[in-house]
């Protein structure tokens, strides 16, 4: 019980940190940061677009870890972690695509186009929506967890593909601005626009971890309900 209390406490700390960074992040993104020289005000969408995909990647990395651990040790705890992170990851991936689309219309001129990066990101969303559907379709707990783990690991492998797509193929989407080995972030994004982005990335990382901690608690409670219904002392 003490362990659960401690877990809950650290979850609340994540929530407070997330809220703090979200408020500062919104202020710097919408008010403090200057408009971009080339794109104008629309560029402010970048302050949620990049943080959203960072949060999504983080969640799917957690799915990957949880899935590997589950296949190795077969502990329900790891499966709950993977299942929860997949749900939060799907939310942030969907948000990334929506934000990108709203940004794409005024900058590129189209809401959507089938270039490699966009196609692979749509695939990532499809894989993990499929993961969630699969989990709800399979009645058998253990079988569902194993199938989920396999899909979760395969799905995660799409992320390096998404990241490299802009180098390997011709795309409409521009190459990365920050996560690249050949250039430093501030060479691509000038400081007045870079630090608001960093604050928002931190905010979204805290927020996604906080939502994940809440989702894990739901999963754990559901697990206890199953235990009670089986008449066990779980």
């Amino acid at each position: 019980m003490a362990k659960a209390e401690k877990k809950r406490g650290s979850g609340e700390i994540l929530g407070v940190l997330a809220l703090l960074f979200i408020l500062v992040g919104l202020y710097v993104a919408l008010i403090q940061a200057p408009p971009d020289a080339y794109q104008g005000e629309v560029q402010r969408i970048m302050y949620i677009h990049i943080p959203s995909i960072v949060a999504a990647y983080l969640c799917f990395f957690i799915v990957f870890l949880g899935s590997c651990l589950y296949l190795w040790k077969r502990e329900t705890r790891d499966d709950i972690l993977a299942k929860s992170a997949a749900e939060v990851g799907v939310l942030f991936t969907a948000l990334t695509i929506i934000e990108g689309s709203i940004w794409g219309k005024p900058t590129w001129g189209v809401w959507w186009t089938w270039d490699a990066r966009l196609t692979l990101t749509a695939l990532l969303l499809m894989i993990f929506v499929g993961y969630i559907m699969l989990r709800s379709l399979i009645e058998d707990e253990e079988r569902g967890a194993v199938c989920g783990a396999v899909v979760g690991i395969i799905g995660f492998l799409d992320i390096p593909l998404i990241h490299m797509s802009v180098y390997w193929w011709r795309t409409l989407h521009q190459p990365p601005s920050i996560f690249r080995p050949d250039k430093l972030p501030w060479e691509n994004i000038k400081w007045p626009l870079l630090w608001p982005l960093i604050i928002n990335i931190v905010a979204f990382v805290f927020l996604s971890l906080y939502l994940l901690s809440l989702r894990i608690r739901v999963g754990e409670t559901e697990e206890r309900i199953k235990g009670e219904m089986l008449g066990g002392t779980a």
Binding site: L26, L30, I45, S52, L95, E99, I102, W103
Partner: peptide, 9 residues
Amino acid sequence: FVLLAYGIV
């Protein structure tokens, strides 16, 4: 566009 994106998110 900016407010639409932030609003939805």
